[in-house]
Write a protein that binds this DNA or RNA. Structure first.
Length: 271
DNA sequence: CGAGCAACCTGCATGC
DNA sequence: TGCATGCAGGTTGCTC
């Protein structure tokens, strides 16, 4: 579900409510996520303060006094802030209750998400240590991508969705960025010229920046921490628009499956 | 090593 | 109405 813009939207949404707040109580209703929630999480977090909330790729990092809480939203995860008197909804697997009467709730129907605790620097954690650059930073650029594609025969869409190459580009924005860059998702990565790498990098940065500005994309169930949907779905150019006219040329948008993922493109505009 | 794909889960839309 | 099927925004960890 959430790609980088949705995770960043969530980060910005919860930050004012939990920054510098003290954890009073933690309720784990169902620890069985992608990896189990540590069974002593409540004891660990008791009386700790949230000092900083950052994001690395699609991971949210809640830096506490004695370590860091790593949260991943998987495909269907959501974080929300409520009064701590709010009754738990279905799939509210974990609640972090603060001393100022607000609760951070983790809801995840499919349970592909994760809540983990680390005492080492989170960027050195097994799940994060091999991640590629942040797409919005300067070290993600055309030269870098051009290096990455050398001798890579895989489809360019699959390459830009590989977190070791660049983080945060998920299935929606991969199709969208390739449309903006006028590059077919099926192109063998190594066939891209340096100029095309520059164009594609610029397209990825543009699409992610615009999506963050719109509060992310709500397809069916993503909500910002304030309970509102994201508005970027209204601006999607190809994703889930199979057989509808291309916004540029009017030809029907095609859909295929590429590496088991739905993929959308315009055969006329993209080469 | 890389590529391909099964697996983890629930919910929803579709078709018979 | 019920049941089977397929699909969904992610990522790891198999097999070949």
């Amino acid at each position: 579900m959430p790609e980088l813009p949705e995770v960043e939207t969530t980060r910005r949404g919860i930050t004012p409510h939990v920054l510098n707040q003290t954890i009073q109580q933690v309720i784990v209703r169902n620890p069985r996520l992608r990896w189990p929630i540590p069974n002593d999480l409540a004891q660990i977090l008791h009386k700790q303060k949230i000092k900083k909330i950052t994001r690395r790729g699609k991971y949210l990092l809640l830096h506490c006094d004695k370590g860091c809480l790593i949260i991943h939203l998987g495909m269907s995860g959501k974080l929300s802030i409520t009064e701590n008197t709010h009754a738990a909804d279905k799939h509210d697997h974990c609640e972090i209750i603060f001393s100022h009467h607000k609760t951070l709730r983790f809801n995840d129907p499919r349970r592909f998400g994760a809540i983990l605790w680390t005492t080492i620097h989170p960027h050195k954690h097994t799940l994060l240590k091999d991640l590629g650059p942040e797409p919005l930073l300067k070290n993600f650029n055309g030269d870098y991508l051009y290096q990455c594609i050398q001798n890579k025969n895989m489809a360019i869409k699959q390459l830009i969705m590989d977190g070791k190459i660049v983080v945060g580009v998920g299935n929606i924005y991969a199709s969208e960025a390739l449309f903006l860059a006028k590059i077919l998702p099926t192109r063998a990565a190594q066939t891209l010229a340096l100029g095309e790498c520059n164009t594609l990098v610029a397209a990825i940065k543009k699409i992610l920046t615009q999506a963050i500005k719109a509060g992310g994309t709500t397809l069916k169930d993503f909500l910002q921490a304030n309970g509102k949907p994201g508005y970027f779905s209204q601006k999607l150019l190809v994703y889930q628009r199979a057989d509808q006219p291309c916004r540029d040329c009017g030809k029907a948008i095609r859909s295929i499956r590429l590496g088991q993922r739905a993929t959308y493109f315009c055969l006329q505009c993209q080469k």
